[in-house]
């Protein structure tokens, strides 16, 4: 599957079926800090993703000191 990461934008190729929470663990990403997007849907941690999927892992943290 193709995984698009943001800030900075980059892409990874990951092979094999797994749950979203397992993928995030491999990427060292805390689940509560990102949206996992497939097309026009949000995926929860138990959703299974596979080789044909294109996922965006979009961070939700924003802001500076103000």
């Amino acid at each position: 599957m193709r995984v698009i990461l943001r800030n900075p934008r980059r892409e990874l190729e990951v092979s094999g079926k797994r749950r979203v929470k397992e993928l995030l663990l491999e990427l060292h990403v805390l689940p509560s800090t990102v949206l996992v997007i497939r097309g026009d849907e949000l995926l929860t941690g138990d959703a299974v993703v596979g080789d044909d999927d294109v996922l965006e892992v979009r961070p939700v943290m924003s802001g500076g000191g103000a």
Binding site: T33, L35, I37, L42, R58, V60, M61, S62
Partner: peptide, 11 residues
């Protein structure tokens, strides 16, 4: 939370 505002904006 930030996760919730991001999810709302996306949805």
């Amino acid at each position: 939370s930030e996760l919730e505002t991001a999810a709302y904006a996306f949805l």
